[in-house]
Design a binder for these strands. Sequence first.
DNA 1: ATACTATTTGAGTATCTACTCTAATTTGAG
DNA 2: CTCAAATTAGAGTAGATACTCAAATAGTAT
Lengths: 184, 184
Amino acid sequence: MRYKAGLETRDRILESTRTQIAELGLEGTTIKTICDDAGVLPGSFYNLFDSKEQAILTAVRVAIDAVDPDPDHAGTDTLDDLINAYIRFVDEQGDLARVYIRIAVAAGRSSPELRGRVLRHHEGRVKRFSDALLRERPELGQEEADNRAEALVSALNGVTLHRTIDTDFDVGHFAHILKRVATA
Amino acid sequence: MRYKAGLETRDRILESTRTQIAELGLEGTTIKTICDDAGVLPGSFYNLFDSKEQAILTAVRVAIDAVDPDPDHAGTDTLDDLINAYIRFVDEQGDLARVYIRIAVAAGRSSPELRGRVLRHHEGRVKRFSDALLRERPELGQEEADNRAEALVSALNGVTLHRTIDTDFDVGHFAHILKRVATA
DNA sequence: ATACTATTTGAGTATCTACTCTAATTTGAG
DNA sequence: CTCAAATTAGAGTAGATACTCAAATAGTAT
């Protein structure tokens, strides 16, 4: 994958993967539907991705990065930024959020590699929450901030989990209750 | 299903379903492995259950009920009871907890019937948490108690979610932090 | 232009799975 | 004892899916 054509095809496949998941859910999304939608044949798909799983993981990652309030990790994001980005992702990309949770759950039972990947992603997120919290409330100290960040991120995931079942559930409302609690 | 033989077979299938999930995960659990383990043929399985899904849902439900601190719903359970039961379930039946979460997530995309079932179960749980909280802190009022219960249950699910990935994660520790917050 | 890679083609495969169906057998109420 | 209903047997089916492979084609650095 070095030629322009390959990169374009790759983008098209990722975009199709994302829309297929949104339209058909994870179950309904197959190599065939992705390839049809992207106007590509399976051979090309497997020239660019090792597996279906890899393509899906990548598509989800791209979508999450797209709402990142501080893409360069300069340390300029506030706790509100992070929470708002989280809410936006869940609201605007509900089906991808569902898939993200599913991947996370399934990861516990899968290859150490995937589990490691998911875990690192989670830890990175907790760290950013913790850093932002510490910037806001320096007197808490590292350990307490870490603890609260861990609890906050987990609770946000729980709220998201519930939102995937009950689409009327007001994620923003509860997210901000949780934020108030974390900074108390 | 009215004869003794049928009921015994049903129990054996549910028990096998539970152990197969614990040993092989949801992916690894097939009609074949369940039937082999239970010493039953597919014909018998489908005489007693409508589908694989139904058997799994039932097995999970049975396991959850088994740790219920107030099985008769007499309204005698405290918030601590409920939280401890939750922790026990997650600790002792980690793989079933994972499946419970998976079912909940998948439910958002499945039949209205399943979604309704999962939603009712969630609401019933929130109500019990809310009632227990109100017994402990009557001055909160119904609405505030409902709100806090909803947030608490969602947060607990989030903690469970994380625990399914990181088995070192101390569910009890964070559960009690959340409890302290909910009753504050 | 050449030569070397990257990309695409597209039919094909191997494997797995939930579930069905009919006939035979067993159960237990009256 | 009788007989309808429940249970079991167990081979079989239909359908889906992720992925492969060898050959043809297109892209690009020099």
